[in-house]
Simulated assay, not measured.
Amino acid sequence: MTDHRRVDTWLTDMDGVLVHEEDAIPGASEFVEVLKASGKRFLVLTNNSIFTPRDLAARLRGSGIDVPEQAIWTSALATAQFLAEQRPEGSAYVVGEAGLVTAMHDVGYVMTDRDPDYVVLGETRTYSFEAITRAIRLIEKGARFIATNPDPSGPSPAGTLPATGSVAALISTATGRQPYYIGKPNPLMMRSALNRLDAHSETTLMVGDRMDTDIISGLEAGLRTVLVLTGSTSRAQIEHFPYRPTRVVDSVADLVELVGDPDPS
């Protein structure tokens, strides 16, 4: 990097950067340990709204990566925070799992299917036709439509799974109403993470594996960005995009030495 601003804060994606499914990416554990030892503020970001930070911390520990649960920021947490600021102590009909429901309860929201302020759609491995139908009818009656993230699909050991964006498209087709997405690539996800750390965009780096989510949302939030090549975007694909990351590295293993460097140029 030719940018000589110091780096005080690190934001990093999880899947494709630190882990593939349940397997740690080589160098990921060392990267996290150096971050913790440096005393620099950091958050692990994920669009996954299924799990709570405690669940995800346990998953990462099982992969050999020790991330404190308070250092994990999910699209569910960002969604709950956004709604609490927009309409404090409101109500919502939630289609999702424990990560989203817990986050909504923690900000004082009431879960209901009677005239809710919002329909909030998150990721789940057990979408039900009944729940989707109920969401459609509530939106038709005036509930505001929120989705945790626009990811159309996600990986699993058995292959591709439909994700939040696909189900949101189904609901939008039925209702004619588009949701407001909170997670990446909405830079709101980055700004909420910065606010959580009381950090500044000028001195923060975002590490991700996807040009179309991690890098664009970091760029639009005013952050410097690092693309790792262990996930979705290959080196050849970078040139297909009209924007570029600040730096491209093979993996987070290449960032270990930079964490302790006040001038990672």
Rank of each mutant, 00 (worst) to 15 (best):
T2L: 12
T12H: 06
D15C: 07
G16V: 07
G16Y: 06
V17F: 07
E21M: 10
D23T: 13
A28G: 09
S29A: 15
K36S: 12
R41P: 04
F42G: 00
I50K: 15
T52Y: 00
R54A: 15
D55H: 14
R61I: 02
Q70H: 14
A76N: 02
A78Q: 07
A80G: 00
Q81I: 09
Q81W: 11
A84L: 05
A84I: 05
Q86Y: 09
P88T: 02
Y93I: 12
A98H: 03
V107A: 02
Y109H: 00
V110G: 01
D113G: 03
D113H: 08
V119K: 01
L121F: 05
R134N: 15
A135L: 09
I136R: 13
N149E: 11
D151F: 13
P152H: 07
S156N: 08
P157K: 12
A158L: 10
T160I: 14
T160G: 01
L161H: 04
T164K: 04
A168N: 04
A169F: 08
I171Y: 02
S172K: 03
A174F: 12
G176I: 10
P179S: 11
G183Q: 13
P185Q: 11
L188S: 03
M189F: 15
M189C: 12
A193T: 10
L197Q: 06
D198Q: 13
T203Q: 14
L205I: 15
I216T: 09
E220I: 03
G222V: 13
L223A: 03
L223C: 04
R235P: 02
P245S: 04
V248I: 13
V248A: 04
E257L: 11
L258V: 06
D261W: 10
S265H: 12
